[in-house]
Every structure is written in structure tokens, then in C-alpha cells.
């Protein structure tokens, strides 16, 4: 086989393999931006900013069982009192 043919068949083979194999982690989903809300699963109250993110202001339900520090958007002021 000439060198050129060898290269081509090698490349074809490589392409086929690259195409056929499944993606690790599955197909990627492309999602749009979206908005959501989490009410208190215990008493149904909404989550108000002044009450912080970690606990429900009405019944004390724990939304997050951690103490918030200064991160990217969430800051330590977001801890419920």
C-alpha cells in the first residue's frame, strides 16, 4: 500500500472510531436559562431575602445544613439569623 493510502485508511479508521464511541458522561444537554423557587417543604412559606437562605423564617425548617461563608454570589450575610 502506498504511504498516502495507508494514511487515508488509518485516518478513516480513526474517524470511524471517534464517531462510533459513546461519549463518556452521556450526551450533553444544552439548557436555556431558567428561574425557579423553593418554598418551605414544611410550612409552604416562600423564602424571603431578609430571612437568609439557610432556614425558613416561619417554621425554622433547614433549607441548607451548612454555615455560609463568602463565596462567589452567596455571602455570609445570607445565613439566616
Amino acid at each position: 500500500m502506498s504511504e498516502e493510502k495507508k494514511v487515508n485508511s488509518f485516518l478513516e479508521n480513526l474517524k470511524k472510531k471517534a464517531k462510533e464511541q459513546k461519549q463518556y458522561g452521556g450526551e450533553t444537554k444544552i439548557v436555556e436559562a431558567k428561574m425557579d423557587v423553593r418554598d418551605c417543604p414544611n410550612c409552604g412559606a416562600g423564602r424571603a431575602q431578609q430571612d437568609g437562605l439557610t432556614h425558613c423564617a416561619y417554621c425554622g425548617f433547614e433549607f441548607l445544613s451548612v454555615k455560609l461563608t463568602d463565596g462567589i454570589y452567596v455571602k455570609k450575610e445570607d445565613n439566616s439569623q
Partner: peptide
């Protein structure tokens, strides 16, 4: 399992 919202996970996974 950790009782964290995904938004907090994303913060962790950035910081």
C-alpha cells in the same frame, strides 16, 4: 444527601 442546594454546590465547585 448533603442537604445542599445545587446553587451551593456550584459555588463550592467554583471556589
Amino acid at each position: 444527601a448533603m442537604n445542599l442546594e445545587p446553587a451551593i454546590w456550584e459555588e463550592l465547585n467554583t471556589v
